[in-house]
């Protein structure tokens, strides 16, 4: 723990002399992040077990997935109504600000998905399992879909407010890098035929990319040294907060439904790959068998 503390201090103190808004790192923060990481990984492990239990022991799997998506669709409709018609226009940004109710929840949920991917990558290295590998694949794909959508919405929002589609704002750069990195991760998964190697290597890449992302965030922030555009729920007016929350939960339900469905696809695919008889020639079969 002291080692981590020192490393974090070096990283955070190493910004340029004129950088602003650098929070000091406390041991409490590091403990908090470490505990959150461990708890999150354990949580994902629990979710995988739960999926497996529902899939094997009950016949409710389809119903649960349909239910998740159904709740998601209904909440999305409610959220869209609240965001488009019920919420008052923003004092400064007028009606354009309504894009936020889609933009922010999309990116929140994309980040949740990518965190799940990280947890699965770690879990796979600890204890290899097709289930963790499948969930990692599902989470990366869902995360990239939602993240790309969110970033695109950000660009659309930027046009009327900033006058340009894209600014080299730290947050935008970090988001773009995140998408490219996970696109690379998905490409890697497609380019490796051997399921064992694919699972192992994509876990390594998943961990490297996930560890890199917070670093990207800090580095880019110092590099650009621009003022931040903070939007945390506490600074947002209550009338704007309601549609934001509804939309966040709507997309969360959609995310869960999508994840589960994609996980089933990946798992079935893995089982097909593994069940392939040895006599069949595949391109990536290992030559040497003991």
């Amino acid at each position: 723990m002291p080692g981590m503390q020192t490393l974090a201090r070096v990283l955070l103190a190493a910004g340029p002399a004129d950088a602003e808004h650098i929070q000091p790192v406390t041991t409490g923060m590091i403990v908090k992040y470490a505990v959150t990481t461990v708890v999150g990984i354990a949580l994902v492990w629990g979710v995988i077990r739960l999926f497996g239990w529902i899939e094997e022991k009950t016949r409710a799997s389809f119903g649960v997935r349909a239910g998740l998506i159904g709740i998601g669709v209904i909440l999305t409709a409610v959220g869209a109504y609240l965001g488009l018609f019920w919420a008052p226009p923003d004092r400064m940004m007028g009606d354009v600000q309504r894009i936020m109710y889609c933009h922010v929840p999309l990116l929140w949920n994309a980040l949740i998905a990518l965190c799940i991917n990280f947890a699965c990558s770690v879990l796979y290295l600890i204890k290899p399992s097709w289930k963790t590998d499948s969930l990692a694949e599902a989470a990366a794909e869902t995360g990239v879909v939602m993240g790309a959508n969110g970033v695109l919405l950000g660009a659309i929002w930027a046009k009327p407010t900033w006058g340009v589609w894209w600014t080299w704002d730290p947050r935008l750069i970090a988001a773009a890098i995140m998408l490219i990195a996970y696109a690379g991760y998905l490409a890697l998964r497609r380019f490796i035929e051997d399921p064992d190697r694919r699972a192992l290597w994509s876990s390594v890449v998943g961990i490297l990319v996930a560890v890199d992302l917070p670093v990207v965030w800090f580095a880019v922030r110092w590099f650009r040294s621009i003022h931040q555009f903070q939007s945390s729920p506490s600074t947002v007016d209550p009338a704007l907060r309601v549609p934001l929350r509804v939309m966040a939960f709507a997309f969360l339900f959609l995310l869960m439904g999508f994840l589960w469905q994609r996980y089933r696809i990946a798992l079935a695919h893995r089982k097909d790959e593994v069940a392939l008889p040895d006599a069949l020639p595949t391109t990536a079969r290992r030559e040497v068998t003991p």
């Binding site: 890697l188 880019v220 590099f223």
Partner: peptide
């Protein structure tokens, strides 16, 4: 494709 996005922070610095 894998390397470039990962290297962005180090390259910036």
């Amino acid at each position: 494709l894998l390397l470039f996005p990962l290297l962005v922070p180090a390259l910036l610095a």
